[in-house]
Amino acid sequence: MIPPAGPMPAVEFSGVHAWFGTTHVLRAIDLAVAPGETVVICGPSGSGKSTLIRTVNGLVAHGAGTIRVAGVTLDGGAKAADAVRARVGMVFQGFNLFPHLTVLENCTLAPLHVRRVGLAAARALALGHLDRVGLADLAGRRPAELSGGQQQRVAIARALSLEPDVMLLDEPTSALDPEMVGEVLAVLTDLARGGTTLLCVTHEMGFARAVADRVVFMDEGQIVEIAPPEAFFDQPRHPRTRAFLSRILG
C-alpha cells in the first residue's frame, strides 16, 4: 500500500482481517481517513459495515492487520483501547441511551469519568453539546420521554461530550420514523461541515451525495469500490456497486 500523502490519518486500516468464529467477516481492509474527512460506508446487509466500524474503537477485535487511530495502534490491549475510546465517539443504530439516567446525565458520564473534569464543568460542557443538537431544554428528561429523533440527537451529543477526534456512526437513521430522519441528518451535516472526522455507515444516499468526501462500498467483508460521491453515484465502476445502487435507488 502506498502511504497517503499529507498529515497523519485520523483512522488507518492496513491489511485488516476479522473473524467471528470461523466466519471471515473482514478481508484485507486498507483504508485511510484524513482528519476532517467524511467517509460514508454502504453495502448490502451482512457485508461487514458494522464490524468494520466497531474495530475502530475495539468493540470488535480484529484478527490480523493494523488499525491506527489518531496515532494509537490498537494492539488488543486494554490500554490502547482506552486511549482510543477516549478520542472516538460512537453513535448506534438503536441509540443505546442509558435509560436510568437523564439526558444531561447521559452526556456528563464521559466528561466526569473519562475526562475527569469537575461536575460543574461537565454540566456546562454537556449543555453546550445538547444545545448544538438543539435539545438543551430537554436536559432534565429521561430518554424514554423523547421521540426517536430526539433520542438519536442526544446520542450524538453524548458522543460529542468526549470532544472526539473521530465520530463513528452505524446507520444512525435506520431505526427512525421517516419524519425524524431529517433532523438527525441536519445535525450530522452540521458536524461534517464543522470539520469533525466522520465515518458513517448509512443508506441515506442524498446525505452521502451532499456531505461525503468519499463513499466506500463494501460487499462480502471487503472494500469493493471507493469514490467521491459524484463519481460513485454517476459512474459506478464495479458491477456489484452498480447492482447495489440500482437496488436501493430503484
Binding site: L59, N96, L109, V114, S161
Partner: peptide, 25 residues
C-alpha cells in the same frame, strides 16, 4: 448488550461500565 457497548465506546473502563451503567439497571 448495547448498553455495555455504549458505555465502553464512551471510554468507560469495563469496571466503570458495570458500576455506572449495567448494575444500576
Amino acid at each position: 448488550a448495547g448498553q455495555r457497548q455504549a458505555a465502553l465506546a464512551l471510554g468507560l473502563t469495563p469496571f466503570q461500565a458495570t458500576r455506572a451503567v449495567v448494575l444500576p439497571q
